[in-house]
Design a protein around this nucleic acid. Structure first.
Lengths: 236, 236
DNA sequence: AACGGTAGGTGTACGGCGTACACCTGTCAA
DNA sequence: TTGACAGGTGTACGCCGTACACCTACCGTT
C-alpha cells in the first residue's frame, strides 16, 4: 500500500512544467542538447509523452522564446520616449543574457510569435506617443533591428556559443595569439584599444554592456535628431 | 570498350567542386536541405566520398561562408572613410542577398573564419586610415555589429526563411490579416506608413534596401559626428 | 455498481541525419 | 612488376523528430 506506485509519484506533466524544464535545460546545457529525448528524460517521462502537451519541437521552441520575451520589463509610463525605449531595450537585453540560446533561436525562427509581436507593438506605441511619425517609427524599428530585442551580433562574442555549448565557464581573457595578430594587424590594434586607460578593465576584455549601450545611444541620438528636424522618408 | 565505365565518366570530385555545388544547393533549396547525403547525391557520389575533401559538415559550412564573404568587393582606395565603408558594407549586403542562407549560417557559427577576419580587418583599416582613433574604431565595429557584414535581422523579413526553405518564389504582398492588426494596432499602423506617399511601392511592401541604408547612414552619420568632436570612451 | 469516453503516459518503429571504419580500385613512382 | 597511396564505396552505429497503436486511470452518466 505504502503509497501509489512509483510511476504516479512524480509531479504530473503539464505544458508549463515542460516549458520551464526546457528553458532550464537549454540554459544549463545549451540549445543543442535540447532534444525531445533529453527533455523527456529530464522530466522522467518517455519522449512521446511530451507530444500530448506540445505540438512538436518547433512549437516548443516558440513557446520557450515567448517565455523569455515575457521576462522583459513592461514599458515605463510617463517618460520621454527616448528614455523609455532605452530602458526597455536594456531590459530586453538583460532577459536575453540570462538565456544565451534565445537570441539565436529567435533569429532562426520566422519571428512571429505573439509575445514578440506584442513587445514590438508596445515599443512602437512608445515611439508614437512620444511624437514620432508613423513613417519615422517604421524606419526606426528597422534601424534598431534585433537590437530592439536586446541583442546585436556582438561580432567577436564569446557568449554566443554559450547558447550552444552551455554556460560560459568563466570570462577567459582570450588574448589574440601572435600569429593571428600578425595576419590581422588592425583587428589586433583595436582589440585592446578600448578602455585602455581604464585600469579596471583587464587587457583584452571588452565591456559588452558598454558596447551595446554605445550603439543603442548612437541610434537613439540620431533618431532624436531626425525627429526634431521633422524627417520624412518622402524627401529622399 | 565504348569509353570508360560510367563511374569514371563524370568530373572527378574536388574540394572546390564540392563547395560550389554546396553553395548552389543551399541557394536553390535552402540550407536545411543541405545534408551530406543530399550533397553527395547531387554530385553523383556516395556520402562518405565527401569526407576525403572536407573534414566534416561544420568545416564545409565554414568554407561555404568564406566563399560568400570572398564575393565582397575589395575596399575602394582614395575615398573618404565614410564613403568607403558605406560602399563596402553595401557590397557585403549584395553578396549576402544572393545567398540568403549565409546570414543565419554566419550567426550560428562561432564567427572566426579567416575570410571574415580578413574582411573585418580591412574595414578597420579603412576606419583607421580615415583618422578614427583605435578606441573609436573598436566601438564602431561593435556598433555596426552584423550590419558591417551586410545583414541586419530585418525583424519582419520575409527573405529570412528563404535561407531555410529555398528561394523566395515571389515577393508576396503579405498584408496583415485584420485580427492580427487589431491585436497589434501600432504595428499595423506603421506597417503601411512608410513610403505611403510613394505610389511606386505597393501597399504593405517595404523597401528593404532603403531600410538598410537608413540604419547604416544613421550609424555612419553619428560616428562621423563623434569623430569630429574627438570622442573618447574615457570621458564617460 | 457498471460502463463508456477521454486525457495522458507508453512502446515500437520509421526515415533521416552525421560520420567512424574497413574495404576496394585505379594510378603512378621506383 | 610492385607496392604505396589517393580517392571512391558499403556498412553500420547512434542520434534525431515523430507517426501510430496501445494501455490505463479517471470521470460523469446511467
Amino acid at each position: 500500500m505504502a503509497e501509489q506506485a512509483a510511476t504516479s509519484r512524480r509531479a504530473p506533466l503539464s505544458r508549463d512544467r515542460i516549458l520551464r524544464t526546457a528553458v532550464a535545460l537549454a540554459d544549463a546545457a545549451g540549445i543543442d542538447s535540447l532534444s525531445m529525448r533529453n527533455l523527456a528524460q529530464e522530466l522522467g517521462v518517455v519522449p512521446m509523452a511530451l507530444y500530448k502537451h506540445v505540438a512538436n519541437k518547433d512549437e516548443l521552441l516558440d513557446a520557450m522564446i515567448d517565455m523569455v520575451v515575457g521576462e522583459i520589463d513592461p514599458p515605463m509610463p510617463d517618460a520621454h520616449w527616448k528614455q523609455a525605449v532605452r530602458q526597455r531595450v536594456l531590459s530586453a537585453r538583460a532577459a536575453l543574457r540570462c538565456h544565451p540560446w534565445a537570441a539565436l533561436a529567435i533569429e532562426a525562427r520566422n519571428m512571429a510569435t505573439p509575445a514578440i509581436l506584442a513587445y514590438l507593438d508596445s515599443v512602437v506605441a512608445t515611439l508614437r506617443s512620444g511624437g514620432l511619425s508613423a513613417d519615422l517609427a517604421h524606419h526606426v524599428m528597422h534601424a534598431m533591428g534585433s537590437r530592439v530585442l536586446g541583442f546585436s551580433q556582438e561580432l567577436f562574442d564569446t557568449a554566443r556559443d554559450a547558447g550552444r555549448s552551455g554556460p560560459t565557464p568563466e570570462q577567459q581573457p582570450v588574448a589574440m595569439p601572435p600569429e593571428v595578430a600578425a595576419r590581422f594587424p588592425h583587428l589586433a590594434e583595436i582589440a585592446t584599444a578600448a578602455s585602455h586607460d581604464d585600469a579596471s578593465v583587464v587587457g583584452s576584455g571588452c565591456d559588452d554592456q558598454f558596447e551595446f549601450e554605445f550603439a543603442l545611444d548612437l541610434l537613439l541620438d540620431g533618431i532624436e535628431r531626425l525627429q526634431q528636424q521633422g524627417w520624412t522618408s518622402a524627401r529622399r
